[in-house]
Design a protein around this nucleic acid. Structure first.
Ligand SMILES: NC(=O)c1ccc[n+]([C@@H]2O[C@H](COP(=O)([O-])OP(=O)(O)OC[C@H]3O[C@@H](n4cnc5c(N)ncnc54)[C@H](O)[C@@H]3O)[C@@H](O)[C@H]2O)c1
Ligand SMILES: NC(=O)c1ccc[n+]([C@@H]2O[C@H](COP(=O)([O-])OP(=O)(O)OC[C@H]3O[C@@H](n4cnc5c(N)ncnc54)[C@H](O)[C@@H]3O)[C@@H](O)[C@H]2O)c1
Lengths: 202, 202
DNA sequence: AAAAATATGTTATTTTAGTAACATAATAAT
DNA sequence: ATTATTATGTTACTAAAATAACATATTTTT
């Protein structure tokens, strides 16, 4: 998890700083961030230094400046199009999740095999899966969410690789691997089982 | 993430072994597991030893025996009831997710404020949120999935604490903390942003 | 203006996680 | 039967991540 851990930590900083900002805070100290995130203040400072975020020797860090820098480092200062492959229950839940838009993530289309689900007229159009590769190429799509049944996962991965997708958030329990595409697995069953372990063994 | 990492690794072993078993495999070597999970064989052996899983000096590990032991260690050899607080888009997607049942996770009820959603007659009943604490106590519920809007998250957490819930899988972007309850956050926005970082910076 | 206080920036230390190495035991080959 | 092979079990080592410590710069106080 090495380098990834640091990214998640930056995202935690970002989310917390956004919250503090919305309350009206302007500056923040490494101690504040460390306390709420359960890490040491020196780690906060080390992280910030690594990304060229500098504070004042006494006055702490300016929230706005840190946020700008973190967004720049994470690459989320720009808009990013994403497609959803499999417009079933979670697929559609994600499709209309308002939380994405305010982070600059734009769901541009969905794909499915079921003719009942296909509809090019809706705000977010749902196309037939056979148009997937073409759509990716034509619209220069780099990101996808995969929410098809497990047995369809590999086939969809192939099509996305051909189209030129670079990152996939995989919700199927199929543990996909690829040399061409970065795959991030979200396994909700695992999360619950991890919780079961915690409450029974700790 | 210390001890947690090991649990996720055990879950990876479990999922992979189940898959191998379904293909007809009976035995497996630490090298096989290591290769597909991108870890070293010695780590596999170390993990297994730590949990009292023993193999044969030459013949590797018996899949069935390892699975039984892992399930025992994880506490998922028993059935676990879980409730879903917030029967909206993701709440309902999760409610009817067939993947849970085969892992022994039983969704026993949902809760919501919207009168339109409340219905005690469906296979999985949806009750009004005011019945939450009572329901948890009467049915000895220890696990919950939280899928309410962000601004309702804290209030629901309080009720669940009072009821006696011990573990919560939190889908809201509110970063909840509690001394009484183990909380596992699933932040889908973060997962996508992590992916954006990966494809732009690596 | 000088002294005290305080939070950063940075280095040193500790802790933890993961890998490599190898001796041991079991199996297979001759 | 004896030898060679092979994969485990375990210890030693390496790498990396996080913390602790402290010197430095800035601000506040007197
Ligand atoms: N629902 C959940 O809460 C949940 C939770 C965790 C994981 N998952 C996983 O997410 C995936 C989807 O789950 P769901 O509950 O939304 O299922 P679903 O059946 O509601 O949706 C799957 C959709 O994929 C479509 N589809 C089937 N084959 C396809 C193909 N080859 N190409 C494109 N589309 C295709 C179907 O028509 C359907 O609309 C599954 O792999 C499931 O294991 C679901
Ligand atoms: N939809 C997604 O794909 C998605 C993805 C990531 C995170 N989330 C998060 O999950 C949560 C739910 O998202 P959603 O898309 O399902 O929203 P939604 O609006 O569809 O569902 C929320 C449900 O909670 C109910 N509710 C409101 N106040 C309540 C209360 N006090 N007690 C009980 N129920 C209450 C509403 O009636 C509604 O049915 C949000 O916090 C959202 O940020 C959603």
């Amino acid at each position: 998890m090495g380098a990834d851990d640091k990214v998640y930590r930056l995202l935690n900083y970002k989310n917390l700083l956004n919250r503090l900002k919305s309350i009206g805070f302007v500056k923040v100290f490494s101690d504040n961030l460390a306390d709420t995130l359960d890490i040491s203040p020196s780690l906060v400072r080390k992280d910030f230094r690594e990304f060229g975020i500098r504070g004042a020797q006494k006055g702490g860090y300016t929230i706005e400046a840190v946020l700008i820098k973190i967004n720049e480092v994470l690459g989320i200062d720009k808009k990013h199009k994403i497609i959803i492959v499999g417009a079933g229950r979670i697929g559609q839940a994600l499709m209309h999740f308002p939380g994405f838009r305010k982070e600059g993530i734009i769901v541009s289309a969905g794909f499915d095999t079921d003719p009942e689900k296909i509809d090019g007229q809706t705000d977010i159009p749902i196309f037939h899966i056979k148009e997937l590769t073409d759509y990716i190429k034509k619209n220069n799509i780099k990101l996808a969410i995969l929410t098809v049944p497990e047995n369809a996962a590999m086939g969809c991965l192939d099509m996305m690789e051909v189209g030129g997708v670079k990152g996939i958030l995989n919700f199927t329990s199929m543990n996909l691997k690829s040399l061409k595409v970065a795959i991030n697995n979200v396994n909700i069953g695992n999360e619950i089982e991890n919780l079961i372990f915690t409450i029974t063994k700790k």
